[in-house]
Simulated scan of single mutants.
Amino acid sequence: MMLTETDNTFGKREHLCKQTLIDQLFSGKAHVMTAWPLKMVYLVVDKTDEQSASVELMVSVSKRFFKRAVKRNRVKRQIREAYRTQKHELMERMAQMPDKQLLLAVIWQDGKLHDSAELNAKMNKNLQRLVEKL
């Protein structure tokens, strides 16, 4: 399946779920970028199988910041939405490295809610920096 310019999906294949990959991401070799309140942890690894997506994303919002699940879920939804609409450049960059896979974790670091426009701007800033570094 080739992504087109209008393909704004964030399907199950793009979710970072495998425990082995998550452990690999947080093993200490990964790189970190921050655009407050988003912290991005990323690692480029060799693709394990051909079916896996070139970029896999995991979103984390700690209970320490929001006790209520409703607020945590709202923030996670905002982050996923911001990523989904702005991932094209990243996908194009990863398409140039067909045997590699990008593991990406977005971690929330603030105790208060932010509006979606601000989150979109921060996500865009982080993704631009990530594309430059790859």
Rank of each mutant, 00 (worst) to 15 (best):
M2E: 10
M2C: 08
M2D: 12
M2R: 08
T4A: 06
T6P: 07
T6V: 14
T6M: 13
D7Q: 09
N8A: 14
N8H: 13
N8G: 09
T9A: 01
T9G: 12
F10L: 11
F10N: 09
K12D: 14
K12P: 10
R13E: 14
H15F: 11
L16K: 08
L16S: 03
C17T: 14
Q19E: 08
T20C: 01
L21D: 04
I22Q: 06
Q24K: 09
L25V: 03
F26N: 01
F26S: 05
A30L: 00
H31C: 05
V32Q: 10
A35V: 05
A35R: 08
P37D: 05
L38H: 03
L38P: 00
K39T: 04
K39S: 03
K39L: 01
K39I: 06
M40H: 07
V41H: 00
V45W: 08
T48W: 05
D49L: 11
E50Y: 11
E50G: 13
Q51L: 15
S52N: 13
S52P: 07
A53Q: 05
E56S: 02
E56T: 03
L57K: 04
V59H: 08
V61S: 06
F65C: 03
A69T: 13
A69M: 10
V70T: 15
V70E: 02
R72M: 04
R72E: 03
N73H: 14
N73W: 02
N73I: 02
V75S: 07
V75A: 12
V75T: 04
K76S: 15
R77S: 12
Q78D: 15
Q78S: 10
Q78I: 15
I79Y: 06
I79E: 04
R80W: 09
R80D: 05
E81V: 06
E81T: 04
Y83V: 01
Y83R: 00
R84I: 04
R84M: 08
T85C: 15
T85G: 11
K87D: 07
H88D: 14
H88L: 13
L90S: 05
M91E: 09
R93K: 12
M94T: 09
M94H: 11
M94K: 12
A95V: 10
A95L: 11
Q96I: 14
M97I: 13
P98V: 08
D99A: 13
K100H: 12
Q101M: 10
L103M: 02
L104T: 02
I107W: 05
I107L: 00
D110Y: 07
D110L: 02
G111L: 01
G111I: 04
L113A: 05
H114G: 06
D115R: 10
D115W: 04
S116T: 13
A117Q: 13
E118F: 05
L119V: 10
L119C: 05
A121M: 13
M123Q: 06
M123K: 12
M123G: 02
N124S: 15
N124P: 09
K125T: 09
K125R: 10
N126T: 05
L127Y: 01
R129V: 00
L130H: 00
L130S: 00
E132L: 04
E132N: 11
E132G: 06
E132M: 14
K133V: 08
L134K: 01
